[in-house]
Amino acid sequence: MAKSAFLKSSIAKKYWMALTGLFLCLFLVGHLLGNLQLIFSDALHFNQYALFMTTNPAVKVLSYLTYASIIFHAIDGIVLTVQNQKARPVKYVMNRPGKNTIWASRNMAVLGTVILVFIVSHMVTFWAVMHFDEKMPLQTIMINSNGPGLPPQEFYLTTDGGYLPKAQVDQGLIKIEHRTEFHDAGAKVKLKEGYKDLHKITVDFFKQPKYGLIYTILYVLSMVVLGFHLYHGFGSAFQSMGANNPKYNGLIRNFGYAFAIIVPLLFAIIPLYIYFLLK
């Protein structure tokens, strides 16, 4: 009975809120390092990273854990917000929240809701396309295989280091199953899949002539919201877990502030770079 009461208590909810929040902070770092390849690497390496992140068994387990953490963190946050409102149905006569708490701490539910909307739209735009769109383009490369002075041919890259002539594939002479194998002249030739061109999907999304700037601005604003959410959430997570020691509080607080600025800023730089600088 006591155990059941503890699991339903606000203390337990704050504890799990802190654990899932800190785990998602680790996810943010890993995701950021991968996305920075859009600036510091080329299309092939980014697409190799995308393929690894969608096919490696260990990464898949971490991905499912991440999805569960996002859902649990969001639901837990809503429940805690409702509980806090029910615990104080009548507002204090002298209520000066600005004197006692920072703006981010008073609006964590709103900030979290905006972030959740961003995550859903982000997954629909990129994650779902990468996983389920059978018409997603494969990466191509130009090779001068026709001899000196002749125009190069365009080939699809395959993950085993091979090439398939794009013209023949587009004409239906070679049929491609994006995920598993290639078919040539009716005979099944076992080859690894071609690289899904997530790099092209991402670049084209932010460089759209009509909406690219709007999407870039919305992405940057979402990162500002994430920064405010992290600004309060990082330090609050350690407090909820009992790591409240005057000797380390300052270090945790300063690290949290730096994390809340640097990580969202680097994320925001990526679409700005793509829209304004990438040729």
Rank of each mutant, 00 (worst) to 15 (best):
residue 55 T to H: 11
residue 84 N to T: 08
residue 163 Y to L: 13
residue 6 F to Y: 15
residue 34 G to V: 06
residue 88 R to Q: 15
residue 39 I to N: 02
residue 232 H to W: 10
residue 104 A to I: 03
residue 243 A to P: 05
residue 40 F to I: 10
residue 262 I to L: 11
residue 30 G to L: 06
residue 13 K to E: 12
residue 161 G to L: 08
residue 196 K to A: 13
residue 276 F to R: 12
residue 114 V to F: 09
residue 46 F to D: 02
residue 64 Y to S: 07
residue 38 L to Q: 00
residue 169 V to D: 05
residue 184 D to Y: 12
residue 253 R to E: 13
residue 264 P to L: 01
residue 111 L to D: 01
residue 83 Q to T: 09
residue 237 A to L: 06
residue 27 F to I: 06
residue 160 D to S: 12
residue 28 L to K: 04
residue 226 L to N: 04
residue 63 S to R: 10
residue 91 K to A: 15
residue 40 F to Y: 13
residue 169 V to S: 10
residue 107 N to M: 05
residue 97 P to S: 03
residue 191 L to Y: 11
residue 151 P to T: 08
residue 3 K to H: 12
residue 117 V to P: 01
residue 148 P to G: 09
residue 49 Y to C: 08
residue 115 I to T: 03
residue 261 I to W: 11
residue 250 G to H: 03
residue 6 F to Q: 15
residue 166 K to S: 12
residue 25 C to D: 04
residue 269 I to W: 04
residue 265 L to H: 06
residue 242 G to S: 04
residue 28 L to F: 06
residue 236 S to Q: 13
residue 39 I to W: 03
residue 58 A to M: 11
residue 170 D to G: 11
residue 184 D to I: 14
residue 29 V to Y: 09
residue 164 L to P: 06
residue 42 D to R: 15
residue 245 N to G: 05
residue 182 F to V: 12
residue 200 K to A: 14
residue 200 K to I: 05
residue 189 V to N: 06
residue 269 I to G: 01
residue 105 S to R: 09
residue 273 Y to Q: 07
residue 61 V to G: 04
residue 133 D to I: 10
residue 29 V to G: 05
residue 269 I to M: 12
residue 227 G to K: 00
residue 267 F to V: 00
residue 138 L to H: 15
residue 72 F to Q: 07
residue 103 W to S: 06
residue 112 G to L: 01
residue 22 L to Y: 02
residue 81 T to C: 12
residue 105 S to P: 01
residue 162 G to A: 12
residue 89 P to N: 04
residue 130 M to N: 13
residue 74 A to K: 04
residue 51 L to G: 08
residue 173 L to G: 10
residue 215 Y to I: 01
residue 262 I to R: 10
residue 154 E to I: 08
residue 63 S to E: 08
residue 206 F to I: 00
residue 55 T to N: 09
residue 171 Q to H: 06
residue 205 F to T: 06
residue 47 N to K: 07
residue 240 S to G: 04
residue 164 L to Q: 07
residue 45 H to N: 15
residue 155 F to D: 02
residue 128 A to F: 09
residue 75 I to V: 14
residue 96 R to H: 14
residue 217 I to Y: 02
residue 172 G to K: 13
residue 48 Q to C: 13
residue 210 K to Y: 13
residue 92 Y to W: 06
residue 66 T to C: 05
residue 228 F to H: 01
residue 56 N to F: 08
residue 196 K to I: 14
residue 15 Y to M: 10
residue 69 S to W: 03
residue 162 G to C: 04
residue 86 K to N: 09
residue 191 L to H: 14
residue 186 G to R: 06
residue 28 L to A: 08
residue 35 N to L: 07
residue 22 L to E: 03
residue 114 V to W: 03
residue 152 P to K: 10
residue 189 V to Q: 13
residue 136 M to S: 12
residue 270 I to M: 03
residue 248 Y to H: 11
residue 222 S to Q: 00
residue 174 I to W: 09
